[in-house]
C-alpha cells in the first residue's frame, strides 16, 4: 500500500455569537438565554465577499460559511485565486470538504409568493404555478443546494480539486474533516478547505439553532513546510468508529450539536476547540469527551499547548507556534490578513 502523507492544519477561522469560543461551544447555553444569544450580531458579509452580485446569490448560511473560510484562508496565505499558484500549489490539487444541514426552501421569497396567492382563500396550485415566474427568485434553487457553499468558496479561492459536501446531521463536520484528511494523506490533493455553517435563517428545526460557522485549512505537511506555512496542528485520520445514529449522543461533536443545535458546524468547532486558539475558554470545556493519546508526537508539542486528542477517530496533535514559520512565499500574503476574529 502506498505510504500515507502527514496532514497538518495551516488555517482556522470561525464566527460565533458574542462570548462563545469553539471550546465553550460544547457547553449548553444558560436556560434563560434568549434567541439573541444564539445569533451573530453585526455580521457584514461584504467585509468578506466583495462582489455584491455574488453576495446577492448567497443566502445567510453561505455567507457565514464563506466568511469563516476567508478567516481561515487569509492567514494561511490565500486571499485571491492566484495565490494558490503564487504559493507553489496546483489549483487542481486543492479541494473542499463541506458540512451543511438541509437548507429550508421556506424563505421570505416563497412565503411572500404563497401569501400573495392564498390570502383569505384556499391555496390554488394552478394559480400559483401561473404566477411563479413573476414572484419567485429565478435563482432560488441555487440558494437552496447544500453544495453551493463549496461552489462559492471554489470561486473565492480558485479551488479546482475534489469536492464533497456532507449533510449527515451531527456527523457531517467530522466526516468532512476525515475525508479531507484522507484525500490529502492518500495523495489525491495537497490542500483541502473544510468549511461548515448553520443559521436559523435557513433551517427548520423544533429547537432553536445557534448561528455558527467554522473553517480549517488542511495541507500535506511537506507542501506546507515547503511554502513556509504556519503549522497549527497535525491530524491523523484513523478508522471511522462504528457510528449509527443513536450512539452519536456522547460523541464530542454530538455534545456540541445537542448543546447548541448547530449540527453542521459542531464537528469543525470540536476540532478547533482542541487547537491552541480555540482553547481560549478551555476551563469551561466539558471533561470526559476526549480520549488521551500517547503524548510526544510531534516532538515539539509541549504541555503548555492544547493536549493531543482523539476525536471520533481523528487524532489531533497541536503544534508549538513556530516563530521561524511564515518566511516562505506565503509570509507576505499572510501579512495582509485583515479582521481575523
Amino acid at each position: 500500500m502506498k505510504a500515507l502523507r502527514d496532514v497538518v492544519v495551516t488555517g482556522q477561522g470561525w464566527l460565533l455569537p458574542p462570548g462563545m469560543t469553539p471550546a465553550s461551544f460544547e457547553t449548553p447555553l444558560a436556560s434563560d438565554a434568549g434567541p439573541a444569544a444564539r445569533q451573530l450580531h453585526g455580521f457584514d458579509a461584504a467585509a468578506y465577499v466583495g462582489d455584491p452580485k455574488v453576495l446577492r446569490a448567497m443566502n445567510r448560511v453561505f455567507q457565514i460559511a464563506a466568511a469563516a473560510s476567508v478567516l481561515a484562508m487569509r492567514p494561511a496565505g490565500f486571499i485571491a485565486p492566484a495565490d494558490l499558484e503564487r504559493a507553489g500549489l496546483v489549483p487542481e490539487r486543492c479541494g473542499i470538504a463541506t458540512a451543511m444541514t438541509e437548507i429550508s426552501p421556506v424563505d421570505a421569497n416563497l412565503i411572500d409568493a404563497i401569501r400573495d396567492r392564498s390570502a383569505g382563500e384556499k391555496f390554488d396550485l394552478g394559480a400559483f404555478g401561473e404566477s411563479a415566474r413573476h414572484r419567485l427568485h429565478p435563482f432560488r434553487r441555487l440558494m437552496l443546494l447544500a453544495n453551493m457553499a463549496a461552489a462559492h468558496s471554489s470561486l473565492l479561492f480558485g479551488l479546482q480539486g475534489p469536492s464533497f459536501t456532507f449533510n449527515s446531521g451531527t456527523s457531517s463536520g467530522l466526516q468532512a474533516i476525515r475525508e479531507a484528511c484522507w484525500t490529502i494523506a492518500s495523495g489525491r490533493a495537497d490542500l483541502m478547505l473544510c468549511e461548515a455553517a448553520d443559521s436559523p435563517q435557513n433551517s427548520l428545526h423544533c429547537h432553536p439553532v445557534t448561528e455558527a460557522a467554522a473553517a480549517l485549512v488542511l495541507e500535506a505537511e511537506a507542501v506546507a513546510r515547503r511554502r513556509g506555512a504556519r503549522i497549527l496542528a497535525c491530524l491523523r485520520p484513523g478508522p471511522e468508529q462504528p457510528c449509527p445514529s443513536h450512539p452519536r449522543v456522547g460523541e464530542p461533536s454530538s455534545e456540541a450539536a445537542f448543546c447548541h443545535h448547530a449540527p453542521a458546524a459542531a464537528g469543525l468547532l470540536a476540532v478547533l476547540a482542541r487547537l491552541p486558539d480555540g482553547r481560549a475558554a478551555a476551563e469551561r470545556q466539558q471533561p470526559g469527551s476526549l480520549r488521551e493519546t500517547a503524548p510526544g508526537y510531534p516532538p515539539e508539542a509541549s504541555a503548555a499547548q492544547a493536549r493531543p486528542a482523539v476525536l471520533s477517530s481523528l487524532e489531533i496533535v497541536p503544534c508549538a507556534p513556530d516563530p521561524a514559520a511564515l518566511t516562505g512565499p506565503s509570509a507576505a500574503l499572510a501579512a495582509e490578513k485583515v479582521g481575523t476574529r
Partner: peptide, 28 residues
C-alpha cells in the same frame, strides 16, 4: 420537516440495512 431531513432518512435506512458502521450522506 425534521422527520424527512436527510439525516433522519439516513438513520432509517441504516437501521433497515443493518448498517452499524459509518453512515455518510453527501449532497453534490
Amino acid at each position: 420537516w425534521e422527520r424527512r431531513e436527510p439525516a433522519s432518512e439516513l438513520d432509517r435506512l441504516a437501521r433497515r440495512a443493518g448498517a452499524l458502521g459509518p453512515a455518510y450522506c453527501c449532497y453534490t
